[in-house]
């Protein structure tokens, strides 16, 4: 597995496509519940700017969708971490159970660890959930890449 991480809007998906020549990228569903702060934040995609994500809403019911590993790469694992946080589940553990599905894939996740501690309790928990997930995925990865201003660098 190759892990690609970086801040919001840094061009992680574009880098993955250019550098690794991947053709199919699946998107993690946005959490079913509304996120704090912004009305559209559930469908907002910080992993890529123009992907036209489908919304992860199903009526008023919160649905936790597992990532779809059918493509060459999975993008937006931070949305999965967010959804897990809202559902009270540990993203790291769910990913470990799915290991057979992603161990030969490229995984892309937004690093949300470097800003202000969020006011909202769930967002604080999400920030930590995402960090635990990144630690686990990095420990399992054959290669770890960070993307900065559209430039990728292998850091391990």
């Amino acid at each position: 597995m190759i892990l690609i991480f970086g801040g919001a809007y840094q061009g992680k998906r574009d880098f993955a496509k250019e550098h690794f020549g991947i053709e199919t990228v699946t998107e993690c569903a946005a959490p079913g519940a509304e996120l704090a702060g912004a009305e559209d934040s559930g469908a907002e995609d910080t992993c890529a700017e123009d992907s036209g994500l489908a919304e992860g809403h199903s009526g008023t019911e919160t649905v936790l969708a597992l990532p779809d590993f059918s493509g060459d790469a999975v993008c937006g694992l931070e949305r999965f971490a967010r959804a897990c946080t809202e559902a009270g589940l540990e993203a790291r553990d769910l990913m470990e159970e799915q290991k057979a599905g992603w161990q030969d894939k490229i995984l892309i996740i937004t690093d949300v660890s470097q800003g202000i501690v969020p006011m909202d309790k769930t967002t604080r928990a999400f920030r930590e959930m995402n960090g635990r997930l990144m630690l686990y995925l990095a420990s399992e990865a054959d290669e770890v890449w960070r993307v900065f201003c559209g430039i990728g660098k292998r850091i391990r």
């Binding site: 919001a8 840094q10 704090a36 949300v112 006011m119 920030r127 900065f148 559209g150």
Partner: peptide
Amino acid sequence: YIYGDADRYDTMTEDYRRALARVDRALAQ
């Protein structure tokens, strides 16, 4: 570098973050 927050901000702020990233990436090229 203003891209490391867990919080999602209001639309205007997110537009600004996305816009600065757009400029950064163009300049990086």
